[in-house]
Computed example of a mutant assay.
Amino acid sequence: MHELAITQSIVEAVTQRLPDAQVTRVCLVIGKLSGVSVPSVEFCFGPTTEGTALAGAELQVEQTGGRVRCRHCGDEFPCDDLLAVCACGSVELEVIAGQELLIRSVEVRNHV
């Protein structure tokens, strides 16, 4: 399950960037063509954050749709499956969107 390693990397990146902050929410963007299972990341998030500044933080995931361009005819169209065929019959497709995997934002508790 590579989602465990991905989730651990997200937690490490946030804790390295915000070492003294109490994190309350992490917002991710995961593309539908990224090969990353959103339910698996959500499942791994809680256990991965235990004992860190992210413990108890909410995980919010926005999933973006895919988009491809046909290398044969140049047509672009939405696509959420890498096993797709262009209307022209070509399977030579270039992914132009939907492979994102990024931390969009992190919210922290305000220390007053």
Rank of each mutant, 00 (worst) to 15 (best):
F43D: 04
A21Q: 12
V61L: 13
R67F: 02
H2L: 04
L82N: 07
V85R: 15
Q63L: 07
A13Q: 08
V23K: 00
A53L: 13
C88A: 02
Q99N: 08
A5L: 03
V14P: 02
Q60N: 12
L4R: 03
L102R: 15
A21M: 04
V61M: 12
T15R: 09
Q22N: 10
R104P: 11
M1C: 11
N110A: 13
T24M: 04
Q8Y: 04
S34M: 09
T52S: 11
L82H: 11
D75C: 07
G65Y: 02
G56D: 04
V41I: 15
A53W: 00
F77P: 03
V112C: 08
L93E: 05
G31Q: 08
A53H: 08
T15H: 03
T64G: 07
G56H: 05
L83K: 12
L82W: 10
E94V: 12
R25T: 14
V38A: 04
C88L: 01
V106A: 12
V41W: 03
P78W: 05
F45Q: 00
C44L: 08
E92H: 14
I103W: 08
F43I: 01
E3P: 06
P39A: 03
P19M: 06
L102G: 14
I103G: 09
E76G: 02
C79H: 01
F77H: 10
R17K: 15
S34Q: 08
G65H: 10
A53R: 12
Q60F: 11
V112W: 10
T49C: 11
G65S: 13
V38T: 10
D80M: 07
T24S: 14
I96E: 09
H72R: 14
T24I: 12
G35K: 06
R71F: 00
F45N: 00
G66F: 01
I10Q: 00
G98V: 08
V68D: 01
G65Q: 11
T64H: 06
T7D: 01
F77M: 06
T7L: 04
L93I: 12
N110L: 13
Q8T: 07
G46E: 14
S90N: 03
A84Y: 05
G35E: 09
E62H: 14
A84I: 09
